[in-house]
Amino acid sequence: MSPVLRLEGLHKSFDNLEVLKGIDLEVARGEVVVLLGASGSGKSTMLRCINFMEMPTAGRIHFDGDLVGRERNGRVQYKEEELTRLRARVGMVFQQFNLFPHMTALQNVMEGPRTVLRCDARECQRRGETYLNKVGLGWKANDYPARLSGGQQQRVAIARALAMEPEIMLFDEATSALDPELVGEVLETMKGLAEEGKTMLIVTHELGFAYTVADRVLFLSEGRILEQGTPSEVLTYPKQQGTKNFLRGHGTFRLPEPQID
């Protein structure tokens, strides 16, 4: 079976700044891949290139075995309609949630099926309720985002992406904007999806979460994949100096195991 996603020599520059310097990656169906790296290493940009929120400068993106765009004289050209259709098959969760503030939680979740997929009213309702329940917020269906906590907002945002029944979910630092005590509920929700076999590509700073949930961890440095492997290979027995420095930085201050019963 072809991989859901295959990146080939992906490059991205902003003006003169080269952020991605050739990324090759395959993501298999049901695989959970976590992207780690210092800020500025290009992980968010890479994620945003996959659903063309940013246009890649060079390289190819294959989705479900098919090249996105048309190749002509070695350059890939994209049509907006094709990209729009592709985005509907890729779910994205943002750092800042970006819920629609003028819609209730349920309306937020129903919006994609309604406007993009043009589902009938019953199907929209079904998907809205199903996915809101899946993130444990069915009881908040009629609340507006302003009435929800940050963690709840992010879970609604996850439900909104899921309601499109995408083939892959992209998480762009989904917990970085949350108060520490709210991070857990969002990570739990994501873990649940991983266990169900959802294909996920996750940018995060939560190393413990990466260790527990990832099938594979990539470490990005200066626009390239410096190291990759199982969580234990990359996070416990890193080989590259860059990875070691990164992990050392993250482990500077550490609690002894808190005694909680």
Binding site: N51, M53, T84, R85, L86, R87, A88, R89, V90, G91, M92, F94, Q96, N98, L99, F100, E111, G112, T115, V116, A157, R160, A161, M164
Partner: peptide, 11 residues
């Protein structure tokens, strides 16, 4: 981010 959220849904 509002534009992006709509765009990411495939609008």
């Amino acid at each position: 981010g509002q534009w992006e959220a709509g765009k990411a849904l495939g609008m």
